[in-house]
Design a protein around this nucleic acid. Structure first.
Length: 923
RNA sequence: GGGCGAUUAGCUCAGCUGGCUAGAGCGCUCGCCUCACACGCGAGAGGUCACUGGUUCGAGUCCAGUAUCGCCCACCA
């Protein structure tokens, strides 16, 4: 970026595309198999090909890319496998809707035509989605891209189905399933969303078949009475058990049904009598099985009453409900109506009320599959983060129910089962069999239905790696390292992936699961397409840049909590990008003026960078120049462009190097702990506050000095370079761009080293001195502001340390204090009378005077001092009480006690100064 | 009905193993276009850490309970 000095502000436009293309063209997204480290592998949770990506995807993808880039830089073969999900029912709905908009009907068009449309749609959305992912900067290995319904994945699905069927875990049964009358398909338990609904409880009378009287049953669904085949009472119900065996007449029909005894009936609930509708209620279905009751279906698949409803035939279920209630009332069979709030199941995809419906479906037995999956999490073989999800996971696993895997849809993996037209024998396989294995006839027909979309997703850690073939990828990269996903699909997906991997490969699918929060808008609503409150990430990237978006998302994402998202949060990231840019601009400008030369034939820097090998704290302290040279070689390769002696390294140089190495170590430690937000914040704060606000301000005079600037430039450039390295996983584009602009850099930042460290940061003494300087500068600035000194007015500040050691430390810092506090002169004195009139403050053990030549408003100054003194005294009172408490002194660790003593002494000194000052002012 | 989470400055949230005179960003107030940056710099104001008890020398941090909000699970009498 030769024009870096010409740009007023950082602008990501163009830069992002440029680098993404370059990375891809140079093959940097593929795992570098020459690296010795342990592979780091993620399979991207495949987005649905239903539309475009939303903010939730951006969050998850940013986190994954951050992890992958970090691991890659640390020298591990890093593989991130892209893919998309066919999303059976969701896509089918979208495509049907599109067709409806054109006046077409899915069923009239037919299966083939519909599938053609669906594939077209898939092509379109896939293109859009992969474009979005690229814009975000995700370093996915596109050569390994997979689609849950492509040929390879189809083979995997069929293989899985056939194996499970042969094992006897897949069975077909007539069962009461969750049926969506809108989409006309069965769905799994997990796709049912329970919502609270204000309904009513209707008390209906069923007259005895013989004689007078009736029983009263309470129901929330009067329309299902046409499916009733019994009334149940508890077998030990003393009030009612004598009625068992009697018959009652079902209103509006000519049927009579028995009163039976079944423990499902609760004497305490309702009237104690329960109508039993085996074909329309899950409990009643069980009761019916236990008691061999007839199953009477009284609705069509669309939830319209059928011929069993007599004169109510043809009414939609809710119309029928009203009509039945009215009719009951007219006939005196309605005893009462109560308001009743209850949970009603809705289809999570279309929102329609689920109808429990009797139909023949394929199921997968789950309890056996769940065993190893439970054990893996119990044993810590797989860790879930945040940990609280472990309980949720186990609770589901231990109460697992069989999975209904067939769907009455077209878009999906067609169930690989063929039925014999003669004997109804069924055969599973990857291809159509020639003849029936049972009777030999050749009239075979494939199942019309498709598999639940999650039946392909649950293979996702290994199907993209080539399973069922034993590919090299599968051997090298499975189990994967980490799965990053939102917790709302822990059952649909995460739990099932664990089961599938143990079942088919005998090993875990991943070592850890990282649950992200849900992205919400400013009102706290979940961002969703239906609400229309999710911005198009492309628009945000256009406006703020991908780095800004990623940076804001990662910094805002605490450990798995939901995050509120708004444009304001993006400004943080954008502004930070500009800050990095500006700091670089300053350093490069000075570099150019200095005309320092970097030899072009220097060696390349090593692929890994262990800061501990560069120097321990002791080595840095003893021979800083040598350590600096090693750090330079580790980051840039080759030698420092200027000779550096130990004494060339100033206080601020040593301080910033110490802080830099500390930030690097902390940042990596936080990445290891998956506290990405802390890692990002660490560098953010280091760069913005330590490096820009203090270091760059402190070295500006040296930057203007021909003799001095060489060393400062080297230190500054190292700080920039290491900051880029630390920030690259989160903000890949701007860091790559600025890295390439550094005179000393070589190669791609993306595949350069990420610093690691296990040693303490150096320059402890210098860091202490510098923070004393910071405190003094703070006090001077505060005095200037509080006393209303004009900004342009540079006066004299007088520092009076408490002791000789303080004096020695400070003598060399006077210039630095003057520079940073914008004073003409800073004097360091011992003893003597207080300068007066002057503003007074205390920084640690140092008294700070700002002589004001009669300009001070005495009342204002007194008030200021009193306020400060009061605050101090309040604290000291508490502290003395603590130190006076024998138990504290004997029980608390020594360093804590000592720390309190030191603080007290310091504050007592401060208070004394303030009191003296107050007394002087009162004279 | 069962379970989980949240409750800290006006707003959004950090605060990981108890030692904090409780932090950040945004917003607000005051002063600055200081030769990298107004997407900026400097200085401030602002909090009984939801409530009640307990453990402890010491609790925002641990325990018990209460309240409010949110989420998940559960067979819709």
């Amino acid at each position: 970026m030769s024009n870096i000095r010409d740009l007023a502000q950082y602008s990501p436009g163009g830069i992002e595309e440029k680098w993404y293309k370059a990375w891809e063209a140079d093959g940097l997204f593929a795992p570098d198999e020459t690296l010795p480290g342990e592979p780091f592998v993620i399979t991207l949770p495949p987005p649905n090909v239903t539309g475009i990506l939303h903010m939730g995807h951006c969050l998850g993808n940013s986190i994954q890319d951050t992890l992958i880039r970090w691991a890659r830089m640390k020298g591990r073969p890093a593989l991130w496998v892209p893919g998309t999900d066919h999303a059976s029912i969701a896509t089918e709905q979208v495509v049907s809707r599109k067709m409806a908009e054109e006046g077409l009907n899915k069923r009239e068009a037919g299966r083939e035509a519909f599938l053609e449309r669906a594939w077209d749609w898939k092509e379109l959305t896939h293109g859009r989605i992969s474009q979005q992912i690229r814009r975000l900067g995700c370093s996915l290995d596109w050569d390994r891209e997979a689609f849950t319904m492509d040929e390879q994945r189809n083979r995997a699905v069929i293989e899985a189905f056939v194996r499970l069927k042969e094992k006897g875990l897949i069975y077909r049964d007539v069962y009461l399933v969750n049926w969506c009358p809108h989409d006309l398909t069965a769905i799994s338990d997990d796709e049912v969303e329970h919502k609270e609904v204000e309904g009513s409880l209707w008390y209906m009378r069923y007259p005895f078949a013989e004689g007078e009287g009736h029983v009263t049953v309470a129901t929330t669904r009067p329309e299902t009475l046409f499916g009733d085949t019994a009334v149940a009472v508890h077998p030990e119900d003393p009030e009612r058990k004598h009625l068992i065996g009697k018959m009652v007449k079902l209103p509006f029909t000519d049927r009579i049904i028995p009163i039976i005894g079944d423990h499902h009936a609760d004497p305490e609930k309702g009237t104690g009598f329960v109508k039993i509708t085996p074909a329309h209620d899950p409990n009643d279905f069980e009761v019916g099985r236990r008691n061999n009751l007839e199953q009477v279906i009284c609705m069509t698949p669309s939830a319209v009453m059928n011929e069993k409803a007599g004169r109510f035939e043809g009414l939609e279920r809710y119309e029928c409900r009203e009509a039945v209630v009215k009719a009951l009332e007219e006939e005196g069979l309605l005893e009462k109506i109560e308001k009743h709030v209850h949970q009603v199941g809705h289809h999570d995809r279309c929102g329609h009320v689920i109808e429990p419906y009797l139909s023949k479906q394929w199921f997968l037995k789950m309890d056996e599959l769940a065993q190893p999956a439970v054990k893996a999490v119990e044993d810590g073989e797989i860790t879930l983060f945040p940990e609280r999800w472990v309980g949720v996971y186990h609770n589901w696993m231990r109460n697992i129910r069989d999975w209904c895997i067939s769907r009455q849809l077209w878009w999906g993996h067609r169930i690989p089962v063929w039925y014999c037209a003669e004997c109804d024998h069924d055969m599973a396989g990857s291809e159509a069999p020639l003849r029936c294995a049972a009777c030999g006839c050749e009239n075979l027909k494939q199942d019309e239905d498709v598999l639940d979309t999650w039946f392909s997703s649950w293979l996702w850690t290994f199907s993209p790696l080539g399973w069922p073939e034993k590919t090299p990828d599968l051997q090298k990269y499975h189990p994967t390292t980490v799965m990053v996903t939102a917790a709302d699909i822990i059952f649909f997906w995460v739990a099932r992936m664990v089961m599938a991997s143990y079942e088919f490969l005998g090993e875990k699918p991943f070592g850890e699961v990282l649950f992200t929060g849900i992205v919400r808008d400013e009102q706290g609503r979940k961002m969703s397409k239906s609400l229309g409150n999710s911005p198009d990430p492309i628009d945000l990237i256009d406006e703020f840049g991908a780095d800004a978006l990623r940076c804001s998302l990662v910094m805002l994402t605490p450990t798995g909590a939901d995050i509120l998202f708004s444009d304001a949060t993006l400004e943080v990231g954008r502004n930070f990008c500009n800050k990095i840019f500006q700091a670089t601009k300053l350093v490069l400008g000075v570099w150019d003026e200095a005309g320092l030369q970097i030899p072009s034939d220097r060696p390349a820097p090593p692929r890994t960078l262990d800061l501990g090998e560069v120097g321990t704290a002791q080595q840095w302290d003893a021979e800083p120049a040598a350590c600096l040279a090693r750090l330079w070689a580790g980051v840039f390769g080759g030698d420092l462009p200027v000779p550096v002696q130990d004494e060339d390294l100033t206080l601020e140089d040593r301080w910033i190097l110490g802080r830099l190495l500390q930030a690097a170590a902390d940042s990596d430690a936080n990445m290891e702990k998956r506290r990405l937000n802390d890692a990002a914040y660490e560098v953010f704060n280091f760069f913005r506050h330590d490096f820009c606000d203090w270091y760059l301000e402190a070295v500006k005079p040296r930057f203007r000095d021909q003799e001095m600037r060489g060393v400062a430039l080297c230190v500054a450039q190292l700080n920039l370079a290491l900051s880029y390295k630390l920030l690259h996983p989160v903000m890949p584009f701007i860091t790559e761009e600025l890295w390439s602009a550094l005179p000393a850099s070589q190669g791609y930042l993306m595949t350069s080293s990420y610093p690691t460290s296990s040693v303490a940061a150096p320059f402890a003494a210098e860091r202490e001195t510098f923070s004393a300087v910071q405190e003094i500068v703070g006090v001077v600035r505060n005095l200037r502001n509080e006393l209303g000194v004009q900004p342009g007015k540079r006066g004299t500040a007088i520092l009076r340390p408490a002791d000789q050691q303080g004096l020695d430390n400070l003598l060399g810092c006077a210039g630095l204090v003057a520079l940073l506090a914008k004073m003409e002169e800073v004097q360091v004195v011992t003893g003597g009378d207080d300068p007066s009139p002057a503003g007074v403050g205390v920084a640690g053990q140092v008294e700070v005077f700002l002589p004001m030549k009669g300009l001070v408003d005495l009342d204002k100054e007194r008030a200021r001092l009193e306020k400060e003194l009061a605050k101090l005294e309040g604290w000291m009172k508490g502290c003395r009480a603590k130190l006076g408490n024998e138990k504290f002194v004997s029980n608390a660790p020594d360093h804590v006690v000592q720390q309190q003593k030191d603080l007290l002494a310091e504050n007592e000194g401060k208070a004394a100064t303030l009191r003296e000052r107050l007394a002087a002012l009162s004279d």
